[in-house]
Amino acid sequence: MATLSDVIPQLVDFHVQLSATPRGARLGRVLAAEQLRAWGLPLEVPAQIIAELATNAVTHGRVPGRDFKLALTITPDTLLIEVTDARGDRIPQIHDAGRGLVLVEALADRWGVREGPVPCKVVWAEVSLTPVSRGSAIRRA
């Protein structure tokens, strides 16, 4: 199995466009987990974050006929998870009903929301790939 140092020079990005349906969210989780496994990265924390962000995209960010995108990017120290949905007018808040963003905040080192290509938004989360104390910070970029 390839190690992270073997993978970084060869492949540092994964992205997929999925239908904004529960089936699309589930497929995104499966594909992302397989990609993380192929990269030799830990699965548990990123998989939970991906599950929450993908579910939020199809639950709160869905526009009929529009897909959502899931992207994973590796830098030497960080895994960046990005989910782009079609509802740029609906910015998620940590106090919204549900537990999804509470879990993301607890698991991610940092997370936030930024404008995507109009009319989209991108909800992102970073997970450190080095053993460091975990402290989350919400930042809008």
Rank of each mutant, 00 (worst) to 15 (best):
M1D: 09
M1V: 12
A2H: 08
A2T: 10
L4V: 09
D6S: 09
V7Q: 07
I8P: 00
I8L: 15
I8G: 00
P9C: 07
Q10T: 11
Q10N: 10
F14C: 07
Q17E: 14
R23M: 13
R23I: 07
A25I: 11
A25F: 06
R26T: 12
R26Y: 09
L27E: 12
R29H: 04
R29F: 01
A33L: 07
A33M: 11
E34Q: 14
E34Y: 04
E34N: 13
E34K: 12
R37C: 06
W39I: 00
W39P: 00
P42R: 13
P42D: 15
L43S: 03
L43M: 11
V45F: 00
A47E: 15
Q48N: 09
A51E: 14
E52Q: 14
L53F: 10
A54E: 12
T55P: 01
T55C: 11
N56R: 08
A57C: 12
A57K: 09
T59P: 06
T59W: 09
T59S: 15
H60I: 09
V63Y: 12
F68I: 05
F68A: 11
L70D: 06
L70G: 05
A71W: 02
A71P: 00
A71C: 01
A71R: 15
L72V: 01
L72Q: 02
T73A: 06
I74R: 03
T75I: 02
P76M: 01
P76Q: 04
D77S: 10
D85H: 08
D85Q: 11
A86M: 13
R87P: 08
D89F: 03
D89H: 04
H95C: 04
D96L: 06
A97L: 14
L101R: 08
A106G: 06
A106W: 08
L107W: 00
L107T: 02
A108P: 01
A108S: 13
D109W: 05
R110F: 01
G112D: 09
G112F: 07
G112R: 09
R114A: 02
E115F: 05
E115P: 05
G116Q: 10
G116T: 07
G116K: 08
P117G: 05
P117E: 15
C120R: 08
K121H: 02
K121S: 13
V122F: 02
A125K: 01
A125C: 01
A125W: 03
T130G: 00
P131L: 10
P131Y: 01
S133C: 05
G135T: 14
G135M: 12
S136I: 00
A137P: 00
I138Q: 12
I138H: 13
